[in-house]
Design a protein around this nucleic acid. Sequence first.
DNA 1: TCTGGGGTCCTAGGACCC
DNA 2: TCTGGGGTCCTAGGACCC
Length: 419
Amino acid sequence: MFALVDCNNFYASCERVFRPDLNGRPVVVLSNNDGCIIARSNEAKELGIKMGEPAFKIADFLTEKQVTVFSSNYVLYGDLSHRVMNTLGRFTPELEVYSIDEAFLNLTGLTVDWEEYARIIRQTVGRQVGIPVSVGIAPTKVLAKVANHRGKKIPGQNGICVLDTPRKIGEALETFEVGEVWGIGRQYRKLLNSINVYTAGDFLQLDDDWVRRKMTVVGLRVKKELAGISCLELELIPPAKKVICTSRSFGHDQTALEPIEEAVATYAARCAEKLRRQQSCAGMLMVFLHTNSFKEDEPQYAKNLVCKLPVPTNSTIELIHYTSAALRAIYKKGYRYKKAGVIVMEIVPEDRIQGSLFDCVDREKQATVMRKLDEINGKYGRDTLKVAAQGLGQKWKLRQEKLSPCYTTRWQDIIKVRV
DNA sequence: TCTGGGGTCCTAGGACCC
DNA sequence: TCTGGGGTCCTAGGACCC
């Protein structure tokens, strides 16, 4: 048996943990740069606010309805996510952290009342972390997703749903919209609807060969899982990333090369940090740059450049050297730039590097410098020590006008209790 | 004024090898 | 009339997830 535990409206719930005055009130969280709505409390959903809606389009509506708006605060969400996962870890020996707000638990071997167990999980996370969660329990991961969805959406379920018998599963799938099934997105939904398949139950009636042909083995696995045949195992150790990307829109459009170069150097530094955290090196990188395609009346330009590195690296200094050169090669004067990014690829473990006969970089020394850099920044905060190319001005920085404090990770932001 | 930022997997087709 | 059989690697595109 698997449980899927999913935090309700996670980012909005995080903001409410330290703002209990907002309980029962509409809350939304914006994407980077305060662009789009990416999380909504139930009250905000009830007001009809849509996921992904650009905030500026509904600014007046938000004010009128007294919706509390937050910029995204990933430091806070990341820390609360850790706390949730730690708490969940006590309910199973096998936990897969699937995303920032979801985890699968292997419950195989437990002899408990599932409903009761789900209730205890929910209560414990709520009490110890302050985040409301939903719990779905079923014999496969896809069915656990279905159960979780039902626990969350069906009134009276109290965020809990157990699908542990063929009859319960069959009844649930009969009314479960096929596009809501994990692994069936918009395109497949359209395809399935076109042949009169509207529910997960309908989907189960289809011929395996047809599913395999039209939806690849991925679709067939989904079907097997819905039928109660477990094909997706728990991933206990998160696999190393094969590609790492750091990209941001600028707070304001940029025209000069210098600030863009600072931004790209900072993105390169982030990529290098992520590489070192998973103990790998990248053999290739790409820099991209583009104008704002929403502004149709302005001249548009978008370009990227891929650069093969002589020897795979995770050194911030070396990566910045190449990303700066790549940026200078694609930058053209006379445009208003909106976004840039760095992608590192051909990622290999750092102890399996193919060296080069003509390599003239002292890699031992670079590694030592990076280790010290990470140590210092780990202790005193990100970018306490950085490469000069990252700049000091940072006029390209994100817009974050409604950022909440880092209640749990920054000394000066820790909440004060008055006596 | 203003529109996010990350990832994965699978398949088909072409080029190439013996 | 008729033209083998077995591979690999790479890329682009399309689907999906949070």
